[in-house]
Amino acid sequence: MLEGRKVTVLGAGVAGLAVARALALRGAEVTILEQAPEIREVGAGLQISPNGARVLAALGLGDALEAGSQRAEAVDLIDGEAGGRVVRLDLARRRPGEVFRFVHRADLVDLLAAGARAAGVAIRLLQKVEGVTLGPHPPRLATAQGEEIDCDLLIGADGLHSKVRAALNGTVAPFFTGQVAWRATLPEDGGLPPVARVFMGAGRHLVTYPLRGGRLRNIVAVEERDRWAEESWSLTDDPLALRIAFEAFVPEVRGWLDRIERPNLWGLFRHPVAARWQGQGAAILGDAAHPTLPFLAQGANMALEDAWVLADCLARAAPEAALAAYQARREVRVRRIVGAANANARNYHLAGVRRDLAHLGLRFAGRFAPGMLMDRFDWLHGHDVTAPVTG
């Protein structure tokens, strides 16, 4: 069904590059329109869980992922104020083939871009799309350069402020969650253990893990507060504000924060999952369809899953039926993941008696039923969108 079909993808991030390769491998003629002058990524670390790694392997990029990332062995939940490990989640003892990896966002984008180009995808840079028109005619794009582009099939991988999502659903204002996040990376000597460490405190938490073989330390710090911040990946903040927010944390954490000179800051806003993911010759995926808070490490993994399922559906049926099947196959799972991420934010920030009881329960489970905590997420990490679909 895809052989020779022309597909236009907006956005050269994780979702756009992955869906472009998936479609091109099935015979489509794919063009990506990217507004930036080069394919590059801001931000820092990502965690690729088994459900996302399966997609990369199915796309023929498993070896590239292994070469460009680091295997994760465990997650430690730590009392950020009193110190001491609350519980360890052992990732290394999962089922055969279930691999968790730490990867720099830029490295993941680079391997996906190389994979897209190798599959024959054309990538056009400096293509800022200012308008998307859907209707009885084929989707039409208006660029900042004054060009009008008619698309046979349009896929919006254009992120939080997606023009394609707006064309399908109208504009819905997100709301501020009362949380802000700082991101930073620090150079290290390569000796960091392959463990994600989550330091939890009242109204705040900090996550750190190694990147690029331990030569970088990735840091994401989240605080609950009334003052909102812009929803932007490129905004920087005074490092003193970050240090003050975590001044009650253990010396190890404060020592890292003392080394940060220009942290990135962004406000965390909750966007609803889009009601319509497709229609009139267009579809959306990744953050354009279902933005999520960063508390379950599933943003990139969901985008990879979307890419595979969308391409698979388009290979099986004519576009109208295929796009409807794509949303049907993805929506229930995505809503469950977004809800679980929202819940994790609350769990990390407990205070007082509730926090003491929660930590006691985690310690008990870690000692007497260590597999139980990881088994709670079998529905998430054990899912395989690349498995054959029957019926």
Rank of each mutant, 00 (worst) to 15 (best):
L323R: 12
D158C: 14
G156E: 01
E223Y: 02
V99Q: 14
I149K: 05
P272M: 01
G286S: 00
R316H: 06
A82M: 13
E73C: 11
E41R: 04
G60Q: 05
L141Y: 10
A318Q: 15
A365C: 09
A24L: 11
Q35F: 08
R217C: 08
G213W: 05
V132L: 02
R140V: 07
G201D: 10
G62W: 00
D226N: 07
A341T: 12
P239E: 14
L160H: 11
D110Q: 13
A345T: 08
V172K: 11
G170K: 12
Y326T: 10
L362T: 11
V385E: 03
A345R: 11
R183I: 11
L323H: 06
A144L: 03
A341F: 04
E224Q: 12
T177K: 00
G27I: 11
E252D: 12
R243G: 02
A36E: 14
I32A: 05
N218K: 06
D63Q: 15
H349W: 07
G352F: 12
V9G: 08
T390H: 03
H381D: 01
A241P: 01
A288Q: 04
V334A: 00
Q278R: 14
A82W: 02
L111S: 06
A119P: 09
G267M: 06
C151E: 06
Q280M: 14
L112G: 03
A322C: 01
V132I: 02
E41F: 01
P370R: 10
G178F: 04
A184L: 10
H349C: 10
G83C: 00
W379L: 00
L77D: 04
D237R: 09
A282K: 08
L89K: 02
T143M: 07
L265T: 06
V86Q: 11
T390M: 07
L360M: 15
A142R: 15
T185M: 10
N218M: 05
E66R: 15
L108Q: 13
G43L: 04
L350Y: 04
R165G: 01
D150Y: 04
Q47S: 08
R140N: 00
A122E: 14
A57N: 09
G159L: 00
D107I: 08
A369Y: 11
R88D: 06
Q278E: 13
R94M: 04
V332P: 00
H381M: 01
G97P: 01
P272V: 05
V99E: 15
G339A: 12
W266R: 08
G255C: 06
H161N: 13
L56Q: 09
E81D: 09
A282Y: 14
L108D: 11
G115L: 06
A297L: 14
G361H: 13
V195G: 02
A351L: 08
I123D: 01
G382S: 07
G371C: 05
R215H: 13
L206V: 13
E130F: 02
V164Q: 06
R270E: 11
L206N: 07
G135T: 05
L240A: 15
Q278N: 09
G146P: 07
G299P: 04
D107Q: 08
A18P: 02
L168E: 03
S234D: 10
A318T: 14
A343R: 12
S49E: 05
D312I: 09
E188A: 15
L168T: 09
R183N: 13
H271T: 03
M372Y: 12
G83H: 02
V180D: 02
L141T: 04
L285D: 13
A106P: 01
